[in-house]
Amino acid sequence: MNPAAPPQNIAQDALKYTPANLQHNAQVMLFARSSVAAVTGAAAGVLGLTGKDGFVFYGITWLVMSFVLWSLKTRFRPDLYFKNGAREIWTEGVFGGLLSFILFHTFLYGMVHLYQ
């Protein structure tokens, strides 16, 4: 064993939190969340979910998407992919996604239900 070489666990820990890796992980999560927010906003607009029902629909889809990211993408180990771990998976981008949801909801609600 070479005393100058760091143990393998320390070397792996140093590599997993490199800025490029963290930025890539954040971009993947942002893209997935933005896409889901747009699609669910469009679906809520077409379905005519307004007021509290629309926000509940957004909340449910947000929780489902967070669970999918937590279980499938990170395999229940978000601390390996994000500095803040599970907190980042469940809370990052809530309001940005809400704005996308409202935008697509308003547009498609107006297109479908305005002239009925």
Rank of each mutant, 00 (worst) to 15 (best):
S34H: 02
E92C: 07
A42E: 05
A42N: 08
T91G: 14
Y109C: 06
F55H: 11
K52M: 11
L72H: 06
P78C: 15
T50P: 04
K83A: 03
G93V: 07
V68G: 03
A42R: 10
S71G: 13
E92P: 01
H105N: 03
A37Q: 02
W90I: 15
V39K: 08
V68Y: 07
S71R: 12
N84P: 05
A43F: 02
W70L: 07
A42V: 03
G41Q: 00
T61Q: 10
T50R: 11
K83C: 01
G93M: 13
G85C: 12
I60G: 06
G93T: 11
G93A: 12
G48H: 13
L49M: 03
V94W: 13
V68Q: 03
L103Y: 08
G45R: 11
V64H: 04
G110L: 03
W90Y: 10
G96S: 05
G41M: 01
A37L: 05
G85D: 12
L98F: 14
S35H: 07
K52A: 12
G96F: 13
S71Y: 11
F76E: 04
A37P: 00
L72D: 05
V56L: 15
Y58Q: 03
A44R: 11
A38N: 07
K52S: 13
L108M: 01
R87H: 14
K83N: 06
E92Y: 15
M65P: 02
H105I: 06
S71T: 14
Y58W: 10
E92T: 14
R75H: 08
K73F: 14
F107D: 03
I89K: 10
G97F: 07
L72N: 07
R87I: 14
S66L: 00
V36N: 00
F82S: 00
H113G: 00
G41E: 04
G96M: 11
G48Q: 13
T61A: 12
W90N: 09
A37V: 02
G41P: 02
S100F: 10
F57A: 15
V39C: 04
T106Q: 07
N84A: 08
G45D: 12
S100Y: 11
G59M: 12
M111P: 00
G48E: 11
G51S: 11
L47V: 02
V56D: 09
P78S: 15
F55R: 12
S100G: 11
I60K: 07
V39D: 01
